[in-house]
């Protein structure tokens, strides 16, 4: 379960943004909706520990993550959190498979080849395993980013506009994929978007 309470963040230019209390149950799929500039990304960063809130708390199950030291936070994120962004931003120096391996390494999880290939296979990427990143289409690259976020079986998956730069068909595919994979791994899914196409696929919505 993820719980946010009394959360606010003060930017460097003294603009303060406050968020309503909200919670997401274990295994639930939820959506943060709002126009650009409404603070969706900031909320997602606060919830995933990339940013420390000025006030309030973010609680994962019983762990209040904003109390963790920066390096413990990095480790916690590596072990329990999967993040997907609007653009895939894969590491260009590595192949598809190596990008996935990097995730297991940074998350301090064992690097099982079979496990990685299963993941690639389930996302229809197995043929692309040894491709360089720049040889992929936008949709393929986004699927690799999903594989990278999920390979460590995170308990919490966050998506920041994961569908914004995709066409309708790819958009639906990615949403289905995220939901299916999260269910498969028992992960809690939180997506921040202004994309109206995905609105109706989720029940727990936080409108900003």
């Amino acid at each position: 379960m993820i719980q946010i309470a009394g959360l606010s963040h003060c930017f460097s230019d003294n603009v303060v943004i406050s968020y309503p209390d909200w919670q997401v149950a274990d295994g639930e799929h939820s959506l943060i909706l709002g126009a650009s500039g409404s603070g969706k990304t900031t909320l997602l960063h606060l919830m995933s520990g990339l940013l420390k809130p000025t006030n309030g708390s973010v609680i994962f199950d019983t762990q209040e993550i904003n109390q963790l030291s920066p390096s413990r936070m990095d480790k916690f994120r590596g072990a329990h959190v999967g993040l997907i962004f609007q653009k895939p931003h894969l590491i260009a120096a590595l192949t598809v498979k190596e990008n996935i391996k990097l995730s297991t390494f940074l998350g301090k999880k064992p690097e099982h080849n079979r496990h990685i290939e299963e993941m690639l296979d389930s996302l229809g990427l197995i043929e692309l395993a040894h491709r360089k990143v720049h040889q992929l289409s936008q949709g393929q690259a986004q699927r690799v980013a999903i594989a990278r976020a999920l390979i460590n079986h995170p308990k919490f998956v966050f998506g920041d506009e994961p569908t914004a730069s995709l066409d309708d068909e790819s958009c639906m595919k990615v949403v289905e994929l995220l939901k299916r994979q999260s269910d498969q791994h028992g992960a809690t899914l939180v997506i921040a978007t202004h994309d109206q196409r995905v609105k109706n696929h989720f029940s727990n919505k936080l409108e900003l």
């Binding site: 995933s48 390096s71 990095d74 072990a79 998350g107």
Partner: peptide
């Protein structure tokens, strides 16, 4: 991104 994946 690497930091978000858990790199210190």
């Amino acid at each position: 991104i690497m930091r978000s994946m858990g790199a210190t």
